[in-house]
């Protein structure tokens, strides 16, 4: 099977235009990136062997839209791209939108991965995301790079504590952009989690040197 080439475009939802890029095929893996213009990384190419990876940029945020509103707009955009149920990945600020989306469309989100999320910001977010986290039943993987200088990796424990089915993994020697700093490590743990959900804690690594 030859890989489908990367595709890109814009989708209209709730009166805003959201840019997207896409690679691979299979069950959709929606990536809410913490940046304006979406871009594909080597990690997406690896995950694209198993998944239809759709990366969204941030919809233009005119500051009148709350994070829950952005999330419901995103749900409309995902439907328009033909994805019904999907895996969801949120990075940095995109992590908050992904969390809201997982809370709002819980039956559509198969598994949630948060890459260095900047979702819990005590006091200034203007919504009650933190108090809602305990409602989340979706299998969730939270990743922090040990060298993250944007969001301190210590925040990982806060997600782990609040989200019932959450697994926290530190990616050694990665900064805030884990998928860029350590693409193989990122793809391996994310791919394993998407495939096996919480059973990914059980090792399948063979240690036989010579049979």
């Amino acid at each position: 099977m030859t890989a489908r080439p990367a595709r890109e475009g814009h989708v209209q939802a709730d009166g805003v235009t959201i840019p997207w890029v896409e690679t691979g095929q299979g069950t959709p893996l929606v990536h809410v990136q913490g940046v304006d213009a979406p871009r594909l990384t080597p990690a997406h190419e690896v995950l694209g062997r198993q998944y239809r990876v759709i990366a969204f940029g941030q919809p233009p945020d005119d500051a009148t839209r709350s994070r829950p509103e952005l999330a419901s707009t995103m749900a409309v955009a995902i439907t328009k791209l033909g994805a019904d149920t999907f895996n969801l990945l949120g990075s940095s600020a995109g992590g908050a939108v992904a969390l809201w989306l997982a809370l709002q469309a819980r039956e559509r989100v198969l598994a949630l991965v948060l890459e260095a999320p900047a979702a819990i910001r005590h006091g200034d977010a203007g919504d009650d995301l933190e108090s809602r986290l305990e409602e989340l039943a979706t299998p969730t993987l939270v990743l922090f790079g040990t060298r993250d200088a944007v969001v301190t990796p210590d925040m990982g424990g806060v997600y782990k504590e609040r989200i019932p089915s959450c697994h926290l993994v530190f990616v050694y020697d990665a900064g805030h952009s884990i998928a860029v700093d350590r693409p193989e490590a990122f793809s391996e743990v994310v791919g394993d989690f998407l495939e096996r959900h919480e059973a990914f804690v059980i090792s399948r690594t063979a240690t036989v040197i010579n049979p």
């Binding site: 040990t146 424990g157 782990k160 697994h167 926290l168 993994v169 530190f170 050694y172 391996e188 804690v201």
Partner: peptide
């Protein structure tokens, strides 16, 4: 990497996994 993991194991209050270059643990 091993030294950093030892320090993390001592100090991180929540269960965690480690996706390293040479060491990998899920729990």
């Amino acid at each position: 990497e091993g030294m950093e993991l030892i320090l993390k194991a001592w100090t991180e209050p929540q269960p965690f996994g480690w996706q390293g270059r040479h060491f990998r643990y899920r729990t």
